[in-house]
Design a protein around this nucleic acid. Structure first.
Lengths: 223, 223
DNA sequence: GTCTATAATAGGATAGAC
DNA sequence: GTCTATCCTATTATAGAC
């Protein structure tokens, strides 16, 4: 996905970035992520963000044209975090190794950036209107390209003939769940929070089930 | 899960239900679901709900003590919709048939009640504080009981020794995804909306992958 | 660049006429 | 039971002093 090109969407009248500006913008965005992750776009107030950064709310409007501009900056920030290793997977690669690596990368993202995952989830649940401006056309093309790789593997008899789209959705949902639904996982398992070991265990279980489910044998050891 | 007992939480000063009251309350709840599913608790305004029902907003406060009371009524409504067939699954049952049936039930819920699923998802992503009052203690016990059934199947050699909790999370996330992330599925696949056939295809794919992933053979035909 | 003060509006909630 | 009018607070956003 080409994300750099879209940075201007976040703030059309963006001023040249001085040192102070860059630092403050990042601080505001970081605080904004906390709120957006908990309450979504509509449910978040500039006031709360301002208090969280320790800045008067007028400053937020100095750095970002308005609430929507700040939100879009946060979204762009998230899209830039996304792991792109899956983009380069090709038909020549080993399916089992490639899928295992992708699951690992997605789960690592859930562990390291749970708030980013939640903001994205809330945005999609809300209809994803703010995202459509950012990734409409080439996102669909990207998805088709990735699905084609799975289809080619199946056609070559390297894996079961599973529907590529549904397999990708299963990988997405299964990994994102550990970020988005962490509060529920904690509740039903009696944990206070998820630690690294929990994510590692989940990763191995997901890889085991999904690879076998596609008729694949897990790679002997991860590289 | 014992849900009926908790109905009083939704509105402690609930008045006896007359015909008009019951009808209006349902109309309000229905309209509220639309908004809560799109914007979560904080992001939803009573005003918007009132306009959607075609009632002055003072009426909403007549029927529900306040915004929180209305939200909790919506949540209770959702919990009552939940499929309970999984509760009665026991060690004696056939794992493949039971898991396939559960996936089918969960996916059917996503198809028939996508808004309920989204409200629940938003609530969990937001931290799930409003849910904890409703199902804290026995929810954990319920989960442990269900996980124990999977563990017993594994111990009896009826299926692979997968971690029950992670398997359940995979079933939950994989099925709920088609409700919560429908907007994204539509975007990447170029659909305008998901139809029954899409859900049926997804159901079969999920059952195929997950059953095989657990070392199970799909039941010949569904009952 | 930063902040106080303030405008303008939307939000939740209630009083009280009907 | 129903609705208008209203209160008060929170919210987005801006003006303008420093």
């Amino acid at each position: 996905m080409t994300v750099e090109v879209l940075a201007h969407i976040a703030d059309p009248n963006a001023k040249p970035a001085g040192r102070i500006r860059q630092k403050n913008e990042q601080a505001i965005i970081k605080a904004a992520e906390d709120e957006f992750a908990k309450h979504g776009f509509k449910g978040t107030s500039m006031n709360t963000i301002a208090q969280s950064v320790g800045l008067p709310k007028a400053n937020l409007h100095y750095y970002f044209s308005n609430k929507l501009g700040l939100y879009q900056a946060v979204l762009v920030n998230i899209l830039e975090l996304w792991d792109n290793s899956f983009n380069t997977v090709s038909v020549e690669d080993d399916p089992a190794a490639a899928i295992a690596r992708y699951i690992r990368a997605k789960m690592e993202f859930s562990r390291r950036h749970p708030k980013a995952s939640r903001i994205y989830a809330m945005e999609v649940i809300s209809g994803g209107e703010h995202l459509s401006q950012m990734l409409d056309q080439d996102y669909q093309a990207w998805f088709r390209g990735r699905a084609a790789v799975f289809a080619a593997w199946s056609a070559a008899g390297k894996m079961d003939p599973v529907d590529p789209a549904h397999l990708i959705f299963l990988i997405w949902s299964g990994t994102q769940h550990y970020a988005d639904f962490a509060s529920q996982i904690c509740r039903v398992t009696g944990r206070s929070r998820l630690v690294k070991a929990d994510y590692e265990e989940a990763t191995e279980q997901l890889i085991t089930i999904i690879l076998k489910g596609c008729g694949l044998t897990p790679p002997a050891k991860d590289a």
